[in-house]
């Protein structure tokens, strides 16, 4: 397998790695860089557990090849908090009780972050729509939806 040297920004820091052509971003994160917060639920782009931000857009990292990340920016769940301060979506999800088993949680958080970045005041419909790619089997979604609303409210100027 041909190897490629890539340089990209991962959670704010520059990362230089050599990757085989067929390696996915998910494999690179979990198996090579030991960033296991990003989860693998189906390896087929269907469950959303492996969602990361790629140049600010939420993507299924199991469908992105690592070589494609050369020169780009990737944010995983490990990069959401800054200086031990949780991102408002993390705080809101925690406070709303929108976490049960926690396996879908990293993907949900990144989809929510991406939504709020492009649409700071989403409607109920827009929140549900933005989260349809993140399957959750535990919570029934309502507390997750409430959490995104709360995070949006928290970001509004007082």
């Amino acid at each position: 397998m041909a190897m490629h040297r890539i340089t990209f920004t991962l959670n704010g820091a520059r990362e230089r790695v050599e990757v085989p052509s067929n390696q996915t971003l998910l494999q690179l994160l979990r198996e090579r860089l030991a960033l296991t917060g990003t989860k693998n639920g189906c390896t087929a782009g269907e469950c959303g557990a492996c969602t990361v931000l790629w140049n600010g857009e939420p993507v299924n990292s199991c469908l992105v090849l690592a070589v494609e990340c050369d020169g780009t920016e990737v944010v995983t769940v490990e990069g959401l908090a800054h200086d031990r301060q949780l991102d408002p979506v993390q705080t809101a999800l925690l406070e709303a009780g929108g976490v049960q088993c926690g396996f879908c949680t990293p993907g949900v958080l990144l989809s929510a972050r991406a939504l709020l970045d492009r649409n700071p005041r989403p409607s109920d419909y827009e929140i549900r729509d933005a989260l349809t790619g993140n399957l959750c089997r535990c919570t029934g979604y309502l507390r997750i939806i409430e959490a995104v609303k709360a995070a949006a409210r928290a970001a509004e100027p007082a």
């Binding site: 960033l35 917060g37 949780l86 993390q90 999800l93 925690l94 976490v99 926690g102 949680t105 958080l109």
Partner: peptide, 8 residues
């Protein structure tokens, strides 16, 4: 467990 689950 919520904190560890929202931080990965």
């Amino acid at each position: 467990d919520a904190h560890d689950k929202v931080t990965g």
